[in-house]
Computed example of a mutant assay.
Amino acid sequence: MDQPQPELGITIDCTDARVVADFWAHALGWVQAPPPPGWSDWPSFLRDHEVPEEEWGDGASICPRSGGGPRISFLKVPEPKTVKNRLHLDVRVSGGRAVEQSLREQRIRATEADLVARGARLQREDRFDGHLDHLVMEDPEGNEFCIV
């Protein structure tokens, strides 16, 4: 029997799926993922799958505006984050090391200010050859990510 090609999905555990999904949708310029084919909206899908209404906020999913690429899902879990992530996301805004350093830093700092205003926290600055290379940040629930 032929099996479909696996697809990559990324899931982030959190205590408030909507808050964290909204943060990441903004950070990446993404949108709420559409419901599966055959359903016009998420409430219809959830109702048809007999998900109790009080659980509708337990998950969220975002995707690129183009619809391509992996989705990032957010799943409510009962326990808070307690240790460092072993996997993290990079928000790549600088253009890379080939871009003039002051422009790279300006782009990184502008993104930092925008995301801090939306609940992120700076954990540390990492430098390479004396220049800012990237920032290690935390999303509103403490999940580490980098602005590069």
Rank of each mutant, 00 (worst) to 15 (best):
R124L: 10
S102T: 15
L115I: 11
R97F: 08
E53D: 09
G68M: 09
V91R: 11
P70D: 05
T82W: 11
G67P: 08
L46Y: 14
A120R: 07
R118E: 00
F23I: 01
L103I: 15
A25S: 10
G38T: 06
A117D: 02
E54L: 07
A27S: 05
R109I: 15
S102P: 07
G130P: 03
G96H: 00
A98P: 09
G69R: 07
A120W: 04
Q123W: 02
R121W: 01
R104S: 02
R97M: 13
I62T: 05
G29V: 00
R124I: 05
H88C: 11
L89M: 08
S61R: 08
W39C: 12
E54G: 04
E105H: 07
S61E: 05
P70W: 03
G67T: 05
D48T: 09
L87S: 13
S40G: 12
G67W: 04
S66G: 04
P35A: 01
A110G: 09
R92V: 15
A17C: 12
K81A: 08
V19A: 11
L103E: 15
L122N: 06
W30T: 02
P70R: 01
L115C: 03
G59P: 07
D48M: 08
Q101F: 12
V77C: 10
F23K: 07
V19S: 10
V116S: 01
E105D: 14
N85Q: 05
A17K: 12
R92I: 14
R71V: 08
E54D: 13
G38E: 06
V83M: 09
L115E: 05
I62W: 07
C63H: 12
F45V: 02
T82M: 14
D22V: 03
F74M: 12
G130T: 01
G95N: 06
V93T: 06
W42R: 04
L115A: 05
G130F: 00
E54M: 07
S73H: 06
P70T: 06
V20G: 03
D48W: 06
R65W: 00
G29H: 00
S73V: 02
H49V: 10
A27N: 03
V19D: 04
A110C: 08
A33Q: 00
L103Q: 14
F128Q: 08
G96D: 03
F23Y: 03
W42K: 08
G68P: 02
N85A: 04
G38S: 01
L75A: 14
E50A: 14
L103Y: 08
E55F: 14
R127C: 10
D129M: 12
H49W: 09
E55Q: 15
W30D: 00
W39L: 11
V99N: 10
L89S: 04
P70C: 05
A33C: 01
G69P: 04
T111V: 09
G57Q: 09
P35Y: 00
F23N: 00
A60M: 10
V20T: 11
E100I: 10
V91W: 07
V31S: 09
G67K: 07
Q123T: 09
W39F: 15
E50S: 12
R71E: 09
F74G: 08
V91I: 15
A27M: 02
A21F: 08
G119A: 05
H26D: 10
A27V: 03
E112L: 13
R65E: 10
F45T: 00
A21P: 11
S94F: 01
A21Q: 10
D129L: 13
R86T: 12
R18Y: 09
D22L: 06
L89W: 01
R18T: 15
R65T: 06
E79D: 15
A98R: 15
L103H: 12
